[in-house]
Design a protein around this nucleic acid. Structure first.
Length: 961
DNA sequence: TTGCGTTAGTAGTCTTTGGTTTGC
DNA sequence: CGCAAACCTTTGACTACTAACGCA
């Protein structure tokens, strides 16, 4: 029983609390479990006072976890929905564009023209400036001609089938369909039942047969208009899947039935469809004769705007039981119950013809025979004589695009959508946040189909659409007032907004409606100061709001204020600190006092606020140089650091300081001094670098000397005499491979002794070439090893890197020898590229082992290499050289591999030239891992070898002396 | 039945001037 | 000596949006 531990037993899967075993002091007080209102349970497992107790904590119901999961699932769903919406929208738009292109087909035009009565065609030809000088009259004539054409088309020529057109479906419906059609997926069967237009031939077929879906009707009509030389747009209202989870439709109701949705119905391609293959409760019986001509006769247009037009199909109601017994999906079946007549309801495709006389686009609905009545295209618009909104589930007007003959399109939703500003524009997205992103996305989509240049008619149209919005009238819902460009309600005002001069425009459900222009934004005095403005004397705040405490200091400030108020007794303990907001009209430009005697005014923090240029005091100048403060201080001038803004992190505001403010008379002196100081610093840095470089040289040469001495002294097993060695050394550069065994044995001895003299780190990047030229071949292993350590140490913070080796490059004497091999850039011509490949091939042949890239360090930096090749090499570390000793190579191969993979992931595109990277990676990128042997430099001439040898000797002498 | 208003929950924005110690 | 970096601590208010629900 004498357990010294309290075992806290919790559900191990509890994420919030991390339980551990704890030692409890002897005098553990005992608690009644009632004292805890947390779900903590104490089980007294021993005699009272000295009880060693066991505490059992019952984890709270894992609500959070499941909630989290549910939320995550919701989020995933939302993402899926929005993505589907976007993809679908774009796909539908693409589809419309393809159709639009088909409509330009000349043969189609010719066929349509041949089917059009000459009188109608002549109706358009008559309208010409020369014949009808009056512009307005021309406009009227044009419209009349269009009306005649449309009447003929909708009434006589083209018969619309009740199905086959594009319909809007909700996300759930589509999901259901997909899940059902997955089982027996047949690409040829079309679950949507839409008409198939594969090419312009299909369109021509429909034209000749004078029948098709209403979409086809509109498309063909558009083609006819173009054939008649009328600029015509194919207008499409994209019926994409809504992204909302729940669009109110009866179809959402799930009944678990596994109906198959609508049967595929392509009334033309399947010429004589069975009459009853529609799953809807309407049985459709095609009574039209099979010949198109007969059809035409059968459908005579009734007078009265085509609303109560005769129908090619007579519908009989089918008994309900039959429908369900056939397994029709109630979801879809329920929808198609009220499946609207496609010949009387607003279409998805229609036409706009351009009236040249009026410079205006006229909407034309060739299905219902409507001309120039833009309101009749919105499925939400109440039909004439009915106050009740029609229910149109399968047509949602959200994006309306007009596609012109040249393939470009314009967003003309505003022309057709009722309550565009109040509703549709909001659905399309406004402001920031998710909806803002949606808007951004949509404008990007529209941008893609927008003509790169503007026509005059575009400007006119924009103006027209804008006017439509202005004359749209007041919204009919409260939500419609939100962010409305013209109207505002007090309830939607933001914290910092106020209605300035209340001119009530009217009432909406008892709430006064104000013009949007009366809404003004306010700011706190501090925020106005940030704009370089101050509150005018005596101005009273227009609104009091609770003060925000965003920073720690602000919070403290607030607490202090609250305490003081409490102490004074004129505030309730829980009353908030209030803060006044002011309008811009209550402020004036901040004018700091002029400078006197070169003294700069400073604020409480010892600096000067300079959020905007106007805040600079008269007689002062801003020197936005970083080191200026030091200089001014040294010279003894009065100055103030200029605060131009703030950075905010960790609940704390950090002033952004940009240079200093000084009196104008001191400007020149300080600027000069600054420049001088800058130059000084530069000079110093240069000297320092020089010094560093010299030191490295000294170390290198000394190391080489020691090595040389040691080799002479101890490498008795070498057959070569020094003279031979030298010769070997010189030729080694050209002779890449071979001699491995021999050299390995030779070198190992020496390297073991020389080991402590690692080359200084930063030099390695040149070392591959430097050493090559100075002592190539002598240091087989050591070079590989050292270089690698250098490269690795670039990552390791414990090693002390010389500052930025790339900086040194230009100063480094090493550069001299480095420059012996002209650094190569990326191939600039085909010839160069060919050369590169030739060299690559050459070196690869020379190599035994895995294929190498040809490069010396330079080319490796500039020629992107194949990643696969690289990866293959990594594991063996064979990029060092074929002569690299495996033992040493493997020692660092892991690190190397890690580093390599990291760096290769940086620039993953093989075709792009490697970028210079920061810090350690620069080392790797610009100077490339050392490959000693395989370099593509030109063969050294004898003179060059001589020159290099002399240089080396010179250095040796210099070091000796 | 359906559209609207409300509400809950969440994500994102706005905010806007340390003090001290340690190491170089 | 002077400067720079690290460490400390965890917290709003408000708005916009979405989904869900209730009401008429």
């Amino acid at each position: 029983m004498a357990v010294d531990q309290v075992i806290l037993a919790g559900d191990s899967s509890d994420e919030e609390l991390d339980w551990e075993e704890v030692h409890v002091p002897e005098q553990q007080p005992t608690y009644e479990s009632e004292e805890f209102n947390t779900p903590l349970e104490l089980e007294l497992s021993g005699p009272a006072p000295r009880a060693n107790i066991e505490i059992t904590l019952q984890t709270r119901v894992k609500k959070d976890d499941s909630k989290k999961k549910a939320n995550a699932a919701l989020y995933a769903q939302r993402v899926a929905r929005t993505t589907s919406h976007k993809i679908h929208t774009v796909a539908l738009l693409a589809n419309a564009r393809v159709r639009n292109k088909l409509l330009n087909d000349e043969l189609l035009h010719a066929r349509l023209l041949s089917l059009t009565p000459l009188s109608l065609q002549n109706g358009f030809a008559m309208i010409h400036k020369s014949r009808v000088p009056d512009q307005n009259k021309r406009g009227r004539l044009f419209e009349a001609a269009v009306v005649r054409l449309v009447d003929w088309w909708s009434g006589t020529f083209f018969s619309v089938t009740p199905t086959g057109h594009i319909k809007n479906r909700t996300f759930d419906e589509v999901q259901e369909e997909i899940s059902q059609s997955n089982e027996t997926y047949d690409p040829e069967s079309d679950p949507i039942g839409s008409e198939r237009i594969r090419s312009v031939n299909s369109l021509m077929k429909h034209a000749l047969m004078q029948t098709g879906s209403r979409d086809t009707s509109s498309q063909l009509f558009t083609a006819l208009c173009r054939a008649l030389d009328i600029p015509a747009r194919l207008v499409v209202s994209l019926q994409s899947v809504p992204w909302q989870s729940r669009v109110r439709t009866s179809a959402v109701r799930k009944t678990g039935s596994k109906g198959k949705g609508k049967a595929p119905q392509t009334p033309v391609e399947v010429q004589k469809k069975p009459a009853a293959n529609d799953e809807s409760e309407m049985e459709e019986v095609d009574i039209s004769p099979s010949s198109p001509k007969g059809k035409v006769l059968a459908h005579r247009r009734y007078p009265g705007k085509g609303k109560e037009k005769a129908h090619p199909v007579v519908k009989f109601r089918r008994p309900k039981s039959q429908s369900t017994s056939r397994g029709g999906s109630p979801a879809l079946g329920g929808r198609s119950l009220k499946s609207p007549d496609p010949t009387t309801t607003p279409p998805v495709f229609w036409t706009e013809v351009f009236s040249r006389a009026d410079s205006r686009w006229l909407p034309v609905d060739p299905i219902r025979g409507i001309v120039n009545k833009r309101h009749l295209f919105d499925p939400n618009f109440p039909p004439i004589g009915s106050s009740r909104m029609p229910v149109q589930q399968d047509n949602r007007m959200l994006y309306v695009i007009g596609l012109e003959e040249d393939g470009f399109g314009r967003d003309i939703t505003a022309r057709y959508a009722r309550d565009y500003t109040a509703k549709v524009s909001k659905v399309q997205g406004v402001g920031a946040g998710p909806a803002g992103k949606r808007k951004e996305w949509w404008s990007r989509v529209v941008q893609m189909i927008t003509r790169p240049y503007r026509l005059q008619r575009d400007d006119l149209e924009d103006e027209e659409l804008h006017n439509h919005q202005l004359t749209e009238g007041m919204p009919t819902t409260i939500a419609g007032f939100k962010d409305h460009p013209l109207y505002a309600l007090a309830r939607h005002l933001r914290r910092d907004q106020v209605i300035d001069h209340p001119t009530e425009l009217g009432k909406f459900r008892g709430e006064p409606v104000y013009p949007r222009s009366s809404v003004i934004s306010l700011k706190t005095a501090e925020n106005w100061m940030r704009q370089g403005r101050v509150i005018r004397q005596g101005a009273q705040p227009m609104k009091m709001v609770k003060q925000r405490a965003v920073t720690v200091s602000r919070q403290r400030e607030m607490e202090v204020a609250l305490e003081r108020a409490n102490a004074d007794g004129h505030a309730c303990p829980d009353e908030d600190v209030m803060q006044g907001l002011y309008a811009r009209s209550q402020t004036e430009l901040y004018k700091p006092g002029a400078i006197q005697n070169g003294k700069i005014p400073k604020n409480d923090f010892g600096n000067i606020d300079l959020y905007v240029p106007s805040m600079l005091p008269e007689g002062a100048v801003h020197i936005p140089s970083k080191g200026a403060a030091k200089v001014a201080k040294r010279l003894g001038f009065d100055y103030a650091e200029a605060v131009t803004g703030f950075e905010f992190k960790k609940r704390r505001a950090f002033p952004v300081i940009e240079g200093i403010v000084v009196a104008a008379e001191n400007e020149n002196v300080i600027v000069d001094a600054c420049l001088e100081a800058e130059q000084d610093a530069e000079e110093k840095a240069r000297e320092k670098r020089l010094e560093r470089v010299c030191k490295r040289w000294i170390r290198l040469v000394q190391g080489l000397r020691i090595r040389d001495r040691l080799q002479r002294q101890y490498a008795s097993n070498v057959e070569h005499d020094p003279q031979q060695q030298q010769h070997w050394l010189d030729t080694q550069g050209a002779d890449a491979g071979g001699n491995e065994e021999q050299m390995g044995g030779y070198l190992t001895t020496a390297d073991d002794v020389v080991e402590p003299f690692h080359l200084p780190r930063g030099i390695h990047h040149y070392s591959s070439s430097t050493i090559r030229s100075v002592a190539d071949g002598r240091t087989g292993d050591e070079k590989g090893e050292t270089v690698h350590k250098g490269a690795i140490s670039a990552e390791s913070p414990s090693r002390n890197l010389p500052p930025s080796p790339t900086e040194d490059r230009d100063m480094d004497p090493v550069e001299g020898s480095f420059a012996l091999q002209p650094s190569r850039g990326a191939p600039k011509s085909m010839a160069e590229l060919a050369e590169y490949h030739a060299q690559k091939a050459q070196t690869t042949v020379r190599q035994d082992g895995p294929p190498f890239e040809p490069a010396g360090s330079e080319s490796r930096a500039t020629f992107p290499e194949d990643k696969k090749t690289r990866g293959g090499r990594n594991s063996h570390g064979s990029n060092l050289s074929t002569r690299t000793q495996t033992s040493q190579a493997t020692r660092s191969s892991k690190k190397r591999a890690r580093r390599r993979s990291a760096s290769s992931s940086d620039h993953d595109v093989e075709a792009s030239p490697p970028k210079r990277r920061q810090g350690a990676s620069v080392t790797l990128a610009s100077n490339a891992p050392p490959t000693r042997v395989l370099r593509q430099r030109p063969q050294k001439s004898a003179a060059r070898i001589q020159e290099e040898r002399e240089m080396e000797e010179a250095y040796r002498r210099a070091v000796k002396g």
